[in-house]
Deep mutational scan, measured.
Amino acid sequence: TTYYDVLGVKPNATQEELKKAYRKLALKYHPDKNPNEGEKFKQISQAYEVLSDAKKRELYDKGGE
């Protein structure tokens, strides 16, 4: 599973699309609303952290993490 899959976006997604997808999923899986989905929330946050940063995203796209 790639970070793009976690957020449900395509690899060519814009920053705005990433932000929108992250917010939607973060609300859905937030531990306050969904106590059993803490791990999913962490995955979503990690994916967004990497993909929202241009340098980290470039490194990730080249095969790094």
Rank of each mutant, 00 (worst) to 15 (best):
T1A: 13
T1R: 14
T1K: 14
T1G: 13
T1I: 12
T2V: 05
Y3W: 08
Y3L: 13
Y3P: 03
Y4M: 01
Y4N: 00
Y4H: 02
Y4K: 00
Y4L: 02
Y4R: 01
Y4E: 01
D5C: 07
D5P: 00
D5K: 08
D5V: 05
D5F: 05
V6N: 04
V6Q: 05
V6Y: 06
V6K: 04
V6R: 05
V6I: 15
L7P: 00
L7T: 00
G8H: 07
G8K: 06
G8F: 05
V9W: 00
V9N: 00
V9E: 02
V9I: 08
V9A: 03
V9M: 05
V9G: 00
K10L: 11
K10V: 06
K10R: 11
K10H: 11
P11M: 08
P11C: 10
P11K: 14
P11F: 08
N12E: 07
N12A: 07
N12V: 04
N12C: 12
N12W: 15
A13G: 02
A13S: 05
T14K: 04
T14Y: 02
T14C: 04
T14L: 04
Q15G: 10
Q15V: 15
E16M: 10
E16S: 09
E16V: 09
E16H: 09
E17L: 05
E17N: 04
E17C: 05
E17S: 05
E17P: 00
L18C: 04
L18T: 01
L18V: 14
L18Q: 00
L18A: 01
K19G: 11
K19Y: 11
K19D: 15
K19Q: 09
K19A: 12
K19C: 12
K20F: 11
K20E: 15
K20L: 14
K20M: 15
K20T: 15
A21P: 00
A21L: 01
A21K: 04
A21E: 05
A21R: 04
Y22Q: 03
Y22E: 01
Y22G: 01
Y22N: 01
R23A: 15
R23I: 15
R23K: 15
R23W: 14
R23V: 14
R23P: 01
K24M: 13
K24Y: 12
K24G: 10
K24E: 15
K24I: 12
K24H: 11
K24A: 14
L25D: 01
L25W: 04
L25Q: 05
L25P: 00
A26C: 13
A26H: 08
A26T: 13
A26D: 02
A26F: 12
L27V: 07
L27A: 15
L27P: 04
L27H: 14
L27Q: 14
K28S: 09
K28V: 10
K28G: 05
K28M: 14
K28A: 10
K28P: 02
Y29R: 02
Y29I: 04
Y29P: 01
Y29G: 01
H30V: 04
H30K: 07
H30D: 12
H30F: 07
H30Q: 08
P31H: 06
P31C: 07
P31L: 06
P31M: 07
P31W: 05
P31A: 07
D32T: 11
D32M: 09
D32R: 10
D32F: 12
D32K: 11
D32Y: 08
D32Q: 09
K33V: 15
K33Y: 14
K33P: 04
K33W: 09
K33A: 12
K33Q: 12
K33L: 13
K33F: 14
K33N: 14
K33H: 14
K33E: 10
N34W: 08
N34Q: 08
N34I: 05
N34R: 07
N34S: 07
N34M: 08
P35F: 08
P35G: 10
P35L: 06
P35E: 07
P35Y: 06
N36K: 10
N36F: 10
N36E: 13
N36R: 09
N36H: 14
E37K: 07
E37S: 15
E37C: 13
G38C: 12
G38I: 13
G38D: 08
G38H: 15
E39I: 09
E39F: 08
E39G: 10
E39D: 13
E39K: 10
E39P: 05
K40V: 10
K40W: 10
F41G: 02
F41S: 02
F41I: 04
F41P: 01
F41T: 02
K42E: 08
K42L: 10
K42F: 08
K42T: 07
K42P: 03
Q43E: 13
Q43P: 04
Q43F: 08
I44R: 00
I44N: 00
I44V: 09
I44M: 04
S45I: 12
S45C: 12
Q46Y: 08
Q46L: 15
Q46R: 09
Q46E: 13
Q46K: 15
Q46G: 06
Q46W: 08
A47H: 01
A47Q: 00
A47D: 00
Y48C: 03
Y48W: 12
Y48R: 01
E49N: 09
E49K: 12
E49L: 09
V50L: 05
V50N: 04
V50S: 04
V50T: 13
V50M: 05
V50A: 05
V50D: 02
V50E: 04
L51M: 02
L51N: 00
S52N: 05
S52A: 08
S52D: 02
S52F: 05
S52L: 07
S52E: 03
S52Q: 08
S52R: 10
S52T: 06
D53E: 04
D53R: 02
D53P: 01
D53I: 04
D53C: 05
D53W: 02
D53M: 02
A54D: 09
A54V: 14
A54H: 10
A54N: 07
A54L: 09
A54T: 13
K55Q: 14
K55Y: 11
K55L: 13
K55F: 11
K55D: 12
K55W: 10
K56S: 14
K56E: 06
K56H: 07
K56C: 12
K56I: 05
R57V: 03
R57K: 08
R57Q: 03
R57N: 03
R57M: 03
E58H: 06
E58T: 05
E58I: 05
E58C: 09
L59Y: 08
L59I: 14
L59K: 07
L59M: 10
Y60G: 02
Y60L: 03
Y60A: 02
Y60R: 02
Y60M: 03
Y60H: 04
Y60W: 02
D61C: 03
D61Y: 01
D61K: 01
K62R: 11
K62H: 09
K62D: 05
K62Y: 07
K62V: 07
K62Q: 11
G63T: 11
G64S: 11
G64T: 13
G64E: 13
G64A: 14
G64R: 12
G64M: 15
G64L: 15
E65S: 14
E65L: 15
